[in-house]
Amino acid sequence: MSRQTHTKSPRVGDGALFRRTLIALTLIAGTVLVVAPLAIIAVQAFSRGFEYFAATITDSDTRHAIFLTVVTALIAVPINTIFGVAAAWAVTKFDFWGKRFLIVVIEIPFSISPIVAGVAYLFVYGLQGIFGPMFQDAGIRVLFALPGIVLASMFVTAPFVARELIPLMQAQGRDLEEAATSLGASGFRTFWSVTLPNIKWALLYGVVLCNARVMGEFGAVSVVSGNIRGQTNTLPLHIELLYHDYNTVGAFAAAFILAGLAVVTIIAKVFLERQGAGRRARPTLAAPFVAEKTQ
């Protein structure tokens, strides 16, 4: 489009000064708050050269922390994804008594400090706790072991998928599912070929957020894991430990890995979206249609 001559007064909020100020403010805030700290992590991680960086991250404790973080995510994210889809489906497609209460329950982890969750798990599964002795007798370690870490991570991230899906599924209503059922589709078939294709991007976004949070969770995990180096230390806990050891470069190197895992997740999301969009140009939601008279 050619440059407009300034004969007309600009529309509201369209003035050049306003626009430039807004863009500048956003850029400055973005740089100071997001880009700069990330850049510093990268710079610091490599401040003593690549050799040192490599040595730090191949340290057995660090490797174990990375391993533990990835394993936790591989367990917690799929379970919470299934939970989120089931909860969103129940809340949006059915009417039942206590539905509002269920929505509130799903959102509790959002508003509760993760430390509180950790302490609660300590109370429930600890040796003095409710189920602690039972699991102890069965020879299962929940606290200060992988199950506790996974449970705490799951508590904190329980709402992520459901929260992404509920508004979308509410907006979509029940017509599509009713149509599929009236055409003879089973419940599973309806979910698989009608509901899922229409929520897949929101679902993917929820999964990415959930994964990022599981990998980055500090508070709840720090309470239940016991911070045992090389055994129950996840990556965020390990970073703090290194920092307290005055191993600043080591801490930054581990932080760099954690940030790297997040970036990999985001790249995976973008890649999947591209794949989905490129393979078949299917509109997910009804786009505004071009009026075209029939007959």
Binding site: D175, L176, A179, V194, P197, N198, R282
Partner: peptide, 9 residues
Amino acid sequence: FQHYALFPH
């Protein structure tokens, strides 16, 4: 259905 409920995908 009133709003047709065609499967958009």
